[in-house]
Write a protein that binds this DNA or RNA. Structure first.
Lengths: 154, 154
DNA sequence: TTCTTTACTTGACTGGTTCAAGAAAAGCGC
DNA sequence: GCGCTTTTCTTGAACCAGTCAAGTAAAGAA
């Protein structure tokens, strides 16, 4: 599931991106921490490379996103998050209580809900679905504090 | 479509909210400017009441949202927006080019896509769909600048 | 190894949103 | 209407994710 350093290097070269220590570390952090926010990624990267600046991580994440290596998601009420699963049109479910995020595959057929009943003349090319509800942990405890935690616990 | 001042007052009283001039103005602004962001609402309110503080508008919008009078939406890459259409499970289409937002009714049946193929043990109670594409205007001009404008042009 | 290009560091800054304390107004009972 | 209590609004500061800008360092090509 999680590639090796050599594989990360190939991923970068295939995307015509330069191979640097910060980039390998960021790519590894995104693969090992699904749906992590930028701050978590910075912390993970600094386990290996303590001197990496936050700006470098922001730059690298943006470069990876526009190269299609990773995906940038932004659940309502949350800061930006990143994931390594790309190109398969999956969606997300967000826990109302703790903010945990899980992947959800398409419900109906290959591209569900892509046909809106009334498109107002828009040319629609993509539909993203965000499910909301309670994760197994929060559903178990009846009424804990309702405030979402900052950390995802996927 | 757009209620009168008296009707706004009834809406507030029915929701057990105090009736004040700022609140009437904010409610009117949300009804008259669908999908407006907070700043646009502040500007609209100040047409009537030039002295209203931004903080009051933030407070009022939050009070209305938790009372269910209006709905708070947060399209990826955009600031918070508000709309008066509540309780009918509709979705939104966002123009990639200019950021315009339009309402879209449910595509399939009453609550489409609510059945995920694999729910990871989550208790799902809502699905929100964000369609992406080009609005009629932007689809007409082949290649304008791709940067979204700040203002919605709905 | 040298050179050019791209990436990274440093430090300041922006803008939407929130916090906190006090003044003003709404709505209740009289 | 009149005062009293509670909620709302004003004022002003603060927060924080993310961005900008200038200069240094490193990658990769020749």
């Amino acid at each position: 599931m999680v590639p090796s350093t050599t594989e990360y290097e190939s991923l970068l070269r295939d995307a015509e991106l330069r191979v640097t220590r910060p980039r390998l570390a960021v790519l590894g952090a995104v693969y090992e921490n699904p749906h992590a926010d930028t701050n978590s990624i910075i912390e993970a990267v600094r386990q290996d490379l303590p001197e990496v600046s936050h700006q470098a991580v922001y730059d690298v994440l943006r470069a990876f996103t526009s190269a299609g290596l990773i995906r940038h998601i932004q659940p309502p009420g949350s800061v930006a998050r990143y994931e390594s699963r790309v190109g398969d049109n999956h969606h997300h479910i967000v826990c109302r209580s703790c903010g945990a995020i899980a992947d959800v595959d398409c419900a109906v057929g290959h591209a569900p809900c892509l046909t809106a009943s009334e498109d107002h003349g828009y040319v629609i090319d993509e539909a993203e679905v965000v499910y909301r509800g309670l994760c197994p942990d929060c559903a178990a405890k009846p009424n804990p504090d309702q405030s979402p935690r900052k950390e995802s616990r996927v």
